[in-house]
Every structure is written in structure tokens, then in C-alpha cells.
């Protein structure tokens, strides 16, 4: 019987034995290295970008739809703001700008839901392969989703903005710092959106069918993210509540920074808090999945 070598391609690997279990020095070293393996996640983001870049026609069709609906939405908002000038602290131009900025967010932040293949993988049992990998599932998918978002920001984000600028005229931030702030807030918004969608997807493990939760999630997100109307329109305590919920971190917060009605710092703090909370919840849910779920199929 051939004797087994030490895995010499990677001297860092622990040998089997009592020193290799969790909580030991070896295990901690591995966990630490796992945290700093930035190149893996950078590569995943790149693959996420390229994977979506293979479906150019779909992205362009999405961009066209987002632009057309942007024009419709803007027309309604213009009528509203002409009847009630200064409503919610916006003038007509700000309202129109808000409309097209949030239209541009639909793709990258997947405000209509979806974007993750997880429910399909759970249903078919392919999730088993994801669970074998020595990398945290949530972080893996987040990296991939950020790549997807970057692609969709370019292909589905720019056209509605250009359409808005051409048809109605929209304002743009003048100084580069504000642009940086907008970019940071958009990224944070994608993270919050991912964390929320990840939780929605994992619910399939318990429900076996995702259509119901998907519809609920879509309703909540379209209504409460600011994609339909600015959240500043909601009156009183309801408005306070709506603006403090995680969905507000997706479209409203970055749009506010774009319009200059909120500082990038406070918006980022709000987004970071929700991002951290939802990701933590996602990590807990992933652990529960590991322990509970029946992995479907042979």
C-alpha cells in the first residue's frame, strides 16, 4: 500500500491528528489566512462581472426598460410637483433627478429581486458543492454579487441617467468628493441589498419554494427603498420608521447623497449598520442551514 506523503505543495497545511481540530493553533492560523485571502474574493468579483458580461443583450434590454419607465415615472412626478411645489423638500428638478438616479439603481441593487442563483441551487441540491468549499458561502456570493453589480451599474445604470439628462435635464454633483461619496454609498447599498436578498434566498431551505417570499421581498423593496417615490414623502412617524428601515439604505440613502440632501458620512454609517446587521443574520442563517437542511437530490 503506497504511503501517503505530507501535502508538500502547501507546507502550511496541518497534518492529520489531534492538533488539527477547531480551536487549535493550526485551525486559528487557517481561519486567519482565510480572512486575508483577498485575491480569492477579488477574483470572484471579477468572475461575477464577466459572467454577467456574457449576457449583453439581456442587460441592454434591461437598460432600455429602466429608461422608458424612468420617463414615465418622471412624467408622473413632474405632474405631482407642479401641483404641490416644494413637496417633501424637493423641487421639480430634484424630483426628476431622484427618479432617474433610482432607476439607475434597479439593476445593480436588484431592487426588483433576484440576482442570486442560490434558490435554484438549494432546490436542485447543488448547494452541497457550495457547502464543501473551504470558504464562507455568504462572503463568496457577496464578492460575486459585487462584480455583478459593477457590471450592471455600467450597463443598466448609465443609460437611464443619460435618458433623463437628454429628455428632462437632471442635476449632477459638481465636486469629485461628492462623486466619491456617491460611489461609496452605491457600493454600500449593494452590500445591504445583497445581505437582504441572501436572507430571502436562504428561506428556501425551510420553505422549499421561493416564489412567495420573492414577491413579498419585491413589494417591500420597491415600496420602501425609495424606488417608487422618495421616502421623504411618507408623513410623520410612518416616514421616520420607513427611513430607518434597511430598504432605505438601498436607493434612498445613495440618492440623497447624490442630490446633496444628506452627507456621505451619515448615509454610510446608516448603511454600514444595516449591512453589518443583515450580514450577521445571514451568517447565523448559514450556520442553521448547515445543521438543519436536508440537501435535496441524490
Amino acid at each position: 500500500m503506497p504511503a501517503r506523503r505530507r501535502p508538500d505543495h502547501n507546507p502550511g497545511l496541518p497534518l492529520a491528528g489531534p492538533r488539527a481540530g477547531p480551536g487549535t493553533a493550526c485551525h486559528r492560523a487557517i481561519t486567519l489566512r482565510r480572512c486575508v485571502s483577498f485575491s480569492l474574493y477579488a477574483r470572484l468579483a471579477r468572475y461575477g462581472f464577466r459572467k454577467h458580461a456574457t449576457y449583453v443583450a439581456a442587460a441592454l434590454a434591461g437598460a432600455f426598460t429602466n429608461s422608458v419607465f424612468g420617463v414615465l415615472r418622471a412624467s408622473i412626478l413632474i405632474a405631482l410637483w407642479q401641483a404641490r411645489p416644494g413637496l417633501a423638500g424637493y423641487d421639480v428638478t430634484a424630483a426628476v433627478t431622484f427618479c432617474f438616479v433610482t432607476q439607475a439603481f434597479i439593476g445593480p441593487m436588484q431592487l426588483l429581486g433576484g440576482g442570486l442563483t442560490l434558490p435554484e441551487r438549494i432546490r436542485t441540491g447543488d448547494i452541497a458543492l457550495d457547502l464543501v468549499r473551504p470558504a464562507p458561502l455568504q462572503l463568496w456570493l457577496l464578492a460575486e454579487d459585487l462584480g455583478r453589480a459593477a457590471y450592471q451599474l455600467l450597463v443598466r445604470g448609465l443609460p437611464p441617467m443619460l435618458a433623463g439628462a437628454a429628455v428632462f435635464g437632471i442635476t449632477t454633483p459638481r465636486d469629485p468628493e461628492r462623486w466619491l461619496g456617491v460611489l461609496a454609498c452605491v457600493t454600500a447599498g449593494v452590500v445591504v441589498s445583497f445581505a437582504w436578498r441572501y436572507l430571502v434566498c436562504l428561506s428556501v431551505c425551510w420553505l422549499a419554494d421561493d416564489r412567495g417570499v420573492m414577491v413579498c421581498s419585491m413589494l417591500l423593496t420597491t415600496l420602501l427603498s425609495g424606488m417608487m417615490v422618495p421616502l421623504t414623502l411618507f408623513p410623520g412617524a410612518l416616514g421616520e420608521l420607513v427611513r430607518a428601515l434597511p430598504w432605505a439604505a438601498m436607493a434612498q440613502a445613495p440618492a440623497d447623497v447624490y442630490l446633496g440632501t444628506a452627507s456621505a458620512g451619515s448615509a454610510l454609517a446608516f448603511q454600514a449598520a444595516w449591512g453589518a446587521a443583515l450580514l450577521a443574520l445571514g451568517a447565523l442563517a448559514t450556520r442553521a442551514v448547515r445543521h438543519r437542511v436536508v440537501i435535496q437530490g441524490g
Binding site: 501535502p7 496541518p14 492529520a16 491528528g17 488539527a20 481540530g21 485551525h27 441540491g125 441524490g298
Partner: peptide, 23 residues
């Protein structure tokens, strides 16, 4: 490989290769 798969999953994953024919 001397490890408890469910507890040392990450360490184990580096030492085993897995192929599911249908996936």
C-alpha cells in the same frame, strides 16, 4: 484524514477532493 468532517470542515476540504457526477 484524522479530522471530524463536520467540525473541521474547512481544514478537511483542503485535504479531500469531491466530485458529484450529477453536479
Amino acid at each position: 484524514a484524522g479530522l471530524d468532517p463536520s467540525r473541521a470542515r474547512t481544514a478537511l476540504a483542503r485535504r479531500i477532493g469531491v466530485v458529484f457526477g450529477q453536479r
